[in-house]
Simulated assay, not measured.
Amino acid sequence: MTSTDRQGWQDGRRDATSLAEVLHVLKGRRLLVVGAVLVLAGIALLLGLFREPAYTAEAVVGFAPREAPDDEGAQQAFAQEVFSAATSPGSFSEGVKEEAAWRGTAGEFSDRLDPGVSVLGSGGMEMRVSFSGREPEEAARVANAYAEMFASEAGRLGDEQLSAGTGVAEAAVMRRAVPSEDSGPPALLYAAVAAGVGLLLGGGAALSLEGRSGGWRDVRDAEVTLRAPVLGAIPDYSPTENEG
């Protein structure tokens, strides 16, 4: 069958590509598609297996001012000021690391730490701190040490130390962190997501290459493209090079 040019048949085709055409293209270029899937899934699986596990634990400290500010904005500002005043000294972080027996650089400690304050609807305030450790016990130990030291430092803040003119009435650990066995999505989930991405990329590349092709590879290719049965095909006996 000679089919070096599809241009003459374009007017007889529908504009929308059918599912049969897509499947036929993917089947014809299955090595490309499968290769993209395997490469991306393999990379994701290796990264997931060799990544360092991160176990996160969270502790909560409740505190309240002696005299509550009038509006919510002032309450949020007071909570943030208490947090800054209690945790700003360099001795705070060092004390937490010593209490938790944590060994590591200051940058690593900061990256694994996630504290924050908020105002509750009842007028109270709280500080939540989470820490990601290499082991569940380590994460809980550091989060609890941070919460306990914050409660201790915040409770000592007097009227003259805060711009609102009122100190902290009470501060206590409301919920201690407990070791968690959840270390994030498993490696197989990363591999599955990567395989899906590989399928999309490989399929897109296959369709793009097929769109640039100017000829039919076989009878089935012609049938799928024209959406009509091929009754016969003329073999191409043209010589590949001139003889004589």
Rank of each mutant, 00 (worst) to 15 (best):
R156L: 14
G124H: 01
R51Y: 03
Y190S: 12
L113T: 11
V129L: 03
S18D: 12
T17N: 03
V219F: 00
A147V: 08
G121Q: 11
E181T: 14
S18R: 10
P69V: 02
L207T: 06
P239N: 06
N242Y: 13
R217N: 08
K97E: 06
G8E: 10
H24P: 02
G42T: 11
A77M: 11
A86C: 10
E98D: 14
P65V: 07
G28F: 04
S163M: 04
P179I: 10
S132D: 13
R176K: 14
K97I: 06
V142H: 12
A68R: 14
F63C: 08
P136Y: 12
P235R: 07
S152P: 00
G62A: 12
S213D: 15
R14M: 02
A101V: 07
P69K: 01
S88D: 15
V96C: 09
P53D: 10
S132I: 05
S88W: 03
E135S: 15
A54I: 04
S130L: 05
R156W: 07
G42I: 08
D218K: 02
V117N: 04
K27V: 03
E153N: 11
R134K: 13
T56K: 06
A54M: 08
G198W: 09
G35T: 03
V219R: 13
S180V: 03
S88N: 13
F131W: 09
M1E: 05
A154G: 10
L231I: 09
E99G: 01
P239K: 06
T2W: 09
R220E: 00
P53G: 08
G8I: 09
T240A: 13
K27Y: 04
H24I: 01
E72S: 08
Q161Y: 03
M149Q: 15
A233E: 14
E223I: 03
L207A: 11
A172T: 11
Q76R: 15
L200Q: 04
Q75P: 01
S180D: 14
L209R: 15
W102N: 08
W9Y: 12
M1A: 06
E243A: 14
V224A: 05
D221H: 14
A228W: 03
A100C: 08
L226F: 10
G155I: 01
G123K: 10
V173L: 13
S183G: 03
V230Y: 06
S84L: 15
V39H: 02
L45E: 09
S152F: 00
A154R: 00
A164S: 15
L19W: 10
A143I: 11
V37Y: 02
F83N: 06
E67Y: 01
N242C: 02
A205F: 01
R227H: 09
S84D: 15
S18T: 15
